[in-house]
């Protein structure tokens, strides 16, 4: 299924995520995808025959917002956007999908601090987002539209089932806005997705991503130390301390 995939992190992740395989298979075998679209993953799992390890979706984390189909998309997309490579850890191994699932359940993702009253008019890009979808709806509608596009174009396969190269091409096309999707502008979906993946990758581990402060270690960010009195004028050597997180764990 992922023969051409070279990402060890993703292979390992998917191996642990046993529940994903049957769901994706069901979906691509003609199971109506609409049945999953607005259903919390936990409900879906209850309605499916529980295979071995069914409760242990996504490593140690079971999504409660995203459906298994959406979850599979996000794992694949995270792995393309921030892959595991020689530079440092990837988004999947740092738990960014977990961050996304949890972040979607905050008031922020529900448009809590955005002005969401109509009328919703089209405007030049300088005026920013003028649509009526909040963040969680943007991701959800976008994932569904991307998968629908993939199925139509790639012989019934969803995004997660495509090769890395195909996935990258699709993401590039979405980034530039060239990809035509039903229901949502691909560029809007992509920019929100990338933004959220980066947030999860770099935010404090308490939010679900950046496990073991892996992203901070990669870039040399001391995290939440918040006291550099002794280092403002030091020029000749790198900052010496590893990061600390909000809970006080030292990296």
């Amino acid at each position: 299924m992922f023969d051409d995939d070279t990402s060890a992190a993703r292979r390992d992740f998917l191996r642990k995520s046993l529940t994903l395989i049957p769901v994706v298979t069901l979906a691509s075998a003609g199971f109506p995808s609409g049945a999953f679209a607005q259903t919390p993953a936990s409900d879906v799992q209850q309605s499916l025959p529980a295979g071995p390890g069914a409760a242990a979706a996504a490593g140690d984390y079971t999504p409660t917002f995203f459906t298994p189909q959406e979850w599979a998309f996000l794992i694949a997309a995270c792995d393309r956007l921030i892959p595991s490579d020689h530079v440092g850890p990837g988004a999947v191994e740092l738990g960014v999908p977990e961050f996304l699932d949890r972040h979607m359940q905050t008031p922020y993702a529900n448009g809590g601090i955005w002005y969401m009253q109509g009328p919703f008019l089209e405007a030049a890009p300088e005026f920013g987002y003028q649509g009526r979808l909040n963040l969680r709806e943007t991701l959800r509608v976008g994932i569904k539209a991307m998968d629908a596009h993939c199925k139509k174009t790639y012989d019934g396969k969803v995004f997660a089932e495509l090769s890395s190269a195909q996935q990258e091409d699709l993401l590039k096309a979405a980034e530039s806005g060239k990809l035509a999707l039903e229901d949502i502008a691909s560029k809007l979906f992509f920019s929100n997705l990338l933004n959220e993946v980066r947030n999860g990758y770099f935010a404090d581990p308490s939010h679900g991503g950046n496990k073991n402060m892996g992203a901070w270690k990669m870039i040399g960010y001391p995290g939440m130390r918040a006291d550099y009195t002794d280092w403002i004028t030091v020029r000749d050597k790198p900052y010496p301390l590893a990061p600390v997180d909000l809970s006080g764990r030292r990296g």
Partner: peptide, 10 residues
């Protein structure tokens, strides 16, 4: 995004 972005950001 991708490896080139990670490298540049690091």
């Amino acid at each position: 995004w991708g490896t080139a972005w990670k490298q540049a950001a690091s």
